[in-house]
Amino acid sequence: MSLRHHITRPLIEQNPITLQILGICSALAVTTSLTTALTMSVALTLVLCGSAAVISLIRHHIPGSIRLIVQITIIASMVIVIDEFLQAYAFQISQRLSIFVGLIVTNCLVLGRAEAFAMRNPVLPSVLDGLGNGLGYSLILLIVGAIRELLGAGTLMGRTILTTQAEGGWFQPLDLMQLAPSAFFIIALLIWVIRTVWTRQVETTEYPLRTGAERRQP
């Protein structure tokens, strides 16, 4: 597999959110506006690349029995460092992201890539894989964030796009978009669209529903 593939594959084909359904928690929580979604995306991508680099670098010396602890220690330290930087240089945004930067530690995506890829591959492919997965995650987050902010508040990055009725325009904001369930709906619609186009992603049914004559009588 060429190096370029490490970045392009996770964008849609192997997207962490829409195919692997990882990192949903933060995708719900921080996508009420595009700014927070963007900050979270950058933070997660940095953690993914950084942890992939460090873990890949020392992968030959990580004892198998404590590998998850070592990985999570490295990831957690990077998350704390990034959180500290946000609090120092982007205070307003860090206040809005509140605990969700810290929760990058528990994002299955980060540990998943460390365990599945960085533990077994050289530094460069690992970093590119981290970058690719980070970008795949960011892509979905930004789409969801843009839809939620535009329909929920009529703004993008805080700038007014659709003037709301409260400010004398015509647009009636959809309050639902400010609530977490709307992110589920948008992600579900995205998954539907993606699997309609890339039919290979459609999973086979493990337990088909039996209907009609096949139906077992109680």
Binding site: H60, H61, P63, G64, I66, V70, T73, I74, A76, S77
Partner: peptide, 21 residues
């Protein structure tokens, strides 16, 4: 890598470096 001294040593080193950073 499954040696006890190395396991312990790596754990201490990783923790130490992370704590310092």
């Amino acid at each position: 890598n499954d040696d006890r001294i190395k396991t312990f040593g790596i754990a201490v080193l990783v923790a130490l470096v992370s704590a310092v950073v």
